[in-house]
């Protein structure tokens, strides 16, 4: 069966949608839980988006497709540092943020219309680390070592 590649990861974080939204965008936060990278973006629909590595390189790039502050972000996302993944073209990455009692339910969906996608396989290993570290950062003030470099 030839199906598109997709994963859906969910984590519950003891925080507020506003704090999570800030942590997802601001470089001083992403540098702690997203492998020392930051995002260059104006955060509006149609704006160019890229993940910048500590050496100034671009790991991934794309465009903002949808943005609803503290609620939802959809990005067009292409790998720029792995040729095999780059060749697959653009994927679609969605953040969904929902308040559930004292926690925030944070859902990351990453998908591409390519069977057995190299991009999805590659990022599927990184996201659980990023999510755990983001959760740790927001709940304790410290990110996990594994995502600091």
């Amino acid at each position: 069966m030839s199906t598109p590649s997709k994963f859906v990861y969910v984590t519950y974080i003891r925080t507020t949608p506003a704090k999570l939204w800030q942590a997802l965008k601001e470089p001083e936060f992403t540098r702690q839980y997203f492998f020392s990278t930051w995002q260059d973006c104006e955060w509006k629909v149609g704006a160019a988006w890229k993940i910048v590595t500590p050496d100034g390189g671009v790991a991934d790039s794309g465009e903002v497709l949808e943005i609803e502050p503290e609620r939802r972000l959809v990005l067009k996302w292409r790998s720029e540092h792995r040729p095999e993944a780059h060749a697959e073209g653009y994927s679609r990455m969605t953040y969904d943020i929902e308040q559930e009692g004292n926690d925030v339910k944070f859902t990351v969906t990453h998908e591409i219309d390519v069977p057995e996608s190299k991009l999805i396989k590659g990022v599927s290993g990184g996201w659980p680390m990023i999510l755990s570290s983001l959760k740790s950062l927001l709940e304790t003030g410290e990110a996990l070592d594994v995502t600091k470099d």
């Binding site: 994963f7 859906v8 990861y9 969910v10 984590t11 659980p128 680390m129 999510l131 755990s132």
Partner: peptide, 10 residues
Amino acid sequence: HYLNPTPIHE
């Protein structure tokens, strides 16, 4: 149904 490995990672 999608597998969510995040709790196992934690």
